[in-house]
């Protein structure tokens, strides 16, 4: 068996709670992500998505289980795993440019100041921040621009794995669309592995190779892994015309509205393996065959 780029094995998170002694958010999670994949995870609030992301980032430690990236166990944060937070997490006393350069300096301490600046400006340019905008403080930028800086910073450090925690959650629909396209464009150029939390079903379908569906907590689990077999490059206009689009969308919505509740309670011994793979193209072929009959 070949080793995956990232594999999560037996991940369990328990918090001490007043009544029953322990609250198990999730238990025995297994997960594999291949190099260059864009994987989204979705599920109701409180199922532990953010905890998983924080564990992957090395900011949180799980109660049990390991995360292995490129054959090495993840312990503590690293520049190899860049994070884009929902609230941008820019340092408000630094200009947009400085917010990127400090990260680049940390990645390449041997670089000259000019080299650092050039590198930072390259990525700020990719997200459309130039012509003096990069010298503004975050408070002088709109929410969309702030998130662009945050994305530029994450890409500028060239992490092997990019973790996005609801990166577009706080943005209006138009800005969201533009930045999603920018993200896809940069990603297409760099081929990084991306793990993204989202609550937006359409966003997940548009961006991802695979969507992980998480059931409700406590004892949440990654119930399904839905492959998005829609060819890239995708465009916002034509993707809805793809035959699979609505099948996938309905599947996701149906999971979130009803099936996500069905998995509650501690998992039995036989469970705790990789999420069930779902390919809706197979379904639709079957459906078409049924229709033809």
């Amino acid at each position: 068996m070949t080793q995956s780029f990232l594999s999560v094995e037996g991940l369990t998170q328990r918090y001490p709670s007043s009544e029953s002694g322990e609250l198990t958010v999730f238990e025995n999670l297994d997960l594999k992500i291949e190099k260059g994949e864009f994987v989204s995870i979705t599920g109701h609030s409180g199922c532990g998505k953010s905890t998983i992301l924080n564990v992957l980032a090395g900011l949180d430690e799980a109660s049990e289980g390991v995360v292995i990236m490129e054959g090495r166990e993840v312990s503590g944060p690293s520049l190899d795993r860049g994070v884009v937070f929902q609230n941008y997490s820019l340092l408000p006393w630094l200009s947009a440019l400085r917010n990127v350069t400090f990260a680049v300096e940390s990645r390449h301490p041997e670089w000259s100041a000019d080299q650092v600046k050039e590198h930072a400006n390259y990525y700020l340019n990719l997200v459309g921040l130039n012509d003096g905008v990069e010298y503004r403080k975050p408070s002088q930028l709109s929410g969309g621009m702030r998130q662009r800086v945050s994305i530029a910073r994450a890409f500028a450090t060239e992490p092997k794995l990019l973790l996005l925690d609801e990166p577009f959650g706080a943005l209006d629909a138009l800005t969201r669309g533009t930045i999603q396209d920018e993200l896809l464009k940069i990603w297409a150029g760099t081929g990084q592995t991306i793990f993204m939390i989202t609550h937006d079903v359409d966003e997940a379908i548009y961006l991802s190779d695979r969507i992980l569906l998480m059931s409700n907590g406590p004892y949440a689990r990654i119930a399904e892994s839905v492959e998005i077999e829609i060819d890239r490059p995708r465009s916002r206009g034509s993707i809805v015309e793809d035959a699979l689009y609505y099948d996938i969308r309905n599947h996701l919505v149906q999971f979130l509205t009803s099936r996500s509740k069905e998995f509650s309670g501690p998992s039995s011994e036989s469970d705790g393996h990789l999420p069930k793979m779902v390919r809706l193209s197979e379904n639709s072929i079957i459906k078409k065959k049924l229709m033809a009959l």
Partner: peptide, 11 residues
């Protein structure tokens, strides 16, 4: 968040 930014950038 800011402390996390420092951590993820290995400062």
């Amino acid at each position: 968040d800011w402390v996390n930014v420092a951590k993820t950038h290995e400062l």
